[in-house]
């Protein structure tokens, strides 16, 4: 789509200034939100046509098991080659400081993975989500889960090349989000209990 409209403006009889006023004015016009009922109607039709996968009863174990697999994959991809590389003869020629910092990186990454697994097991230990949820809570939970899923997708995608530093950033973010998720679900469980 081109925005070069010089010839077209001449044909259509507007000066450049007038055309600019029109374009700017049109872009400034306010947008309108559809009524809430529209989404409900869409869901109903989609359900009737079988377009949406039925919402399964939430089973945290399977969802988090996927994350565990992702963790295992990352460990296999990063830790094993590094360990092999360390035992190779040429690695002995590297300055000790590099080997040391690499060791520190691995430890930090492993610590994050362990922390993440611990949070997953904390989450599994919490009671099932109540049937009735506050809309704001659902939105927040959904957003956090989506972000965790996006991170897992990145970590588990073999086509994505990441440096150890990037991997650590992803895992750090994952731990942070898992922490928020556990806290939110814990607060939710507390509310349900009373």
């Amino acid at each position: 789509m081109s925005s070069t409209a010089t010839d077209e403006d001449m044909i259509c009889g507007l000066t450049a200034a007038e055309h600019e006023v029109l374009r700017q004015g049109l872009r400034r016009l306010p947008e309108t939100m559809p009524p809430r009922a529209v989404w409900h109607r869409i869901r109903e039709q989609a359900a009737a046509e079988g377009l949406l996968r039925p919402q399964l009863v939430r089973r945290p174990s399977s969802w988090y098991a996927g994350a565990g697999i992702a963790a295992a994959v990352v460990l296999a991809v990063i830790v094993v080659p590094r360990a092999m590389h360390t035992s190779a003869p040429e690695s002995r020629t590297e300055p000790p400081i590099t080997a040391q910092s690499s060791q520190v990186e691995l430890t930090a990454l492993q610590a994050l993975m362990v922390q993440s697994q611990q949070l997953e097991s904390d989450l599994r230990a919490l009671p099932e989500e109540p049937r009735v949820l506050r809309a704001s809570t659902v939105a927040t939970l959904s957003e956090i889960e989506d972000r965790i899923a996006a991170i897992d997708y990145q970590l588990g995608d073999a086509g994505v090349q990441m440096t150890p530093e990037e991997t650590e950033i992803f895992w750090r973010e994952r731990v942070r989000l898992m922490n928020s998720l556990v806290q939110l679900r814990y607060a939710q469980a507390q509310r349900t209990a009373f």
Partner: peptide, 17 residues
């Protein structure tokens, strides 16, 4: 509107059909 925003000068310098 173009006159009010002062862009008419630029417009006169450019093409007019």
């Amino acid at each position: 509107a173009a006159e009010e925003t002062g862009t008419v000068g630029a417009a006169l310098r450019s093409y007019r059909v």
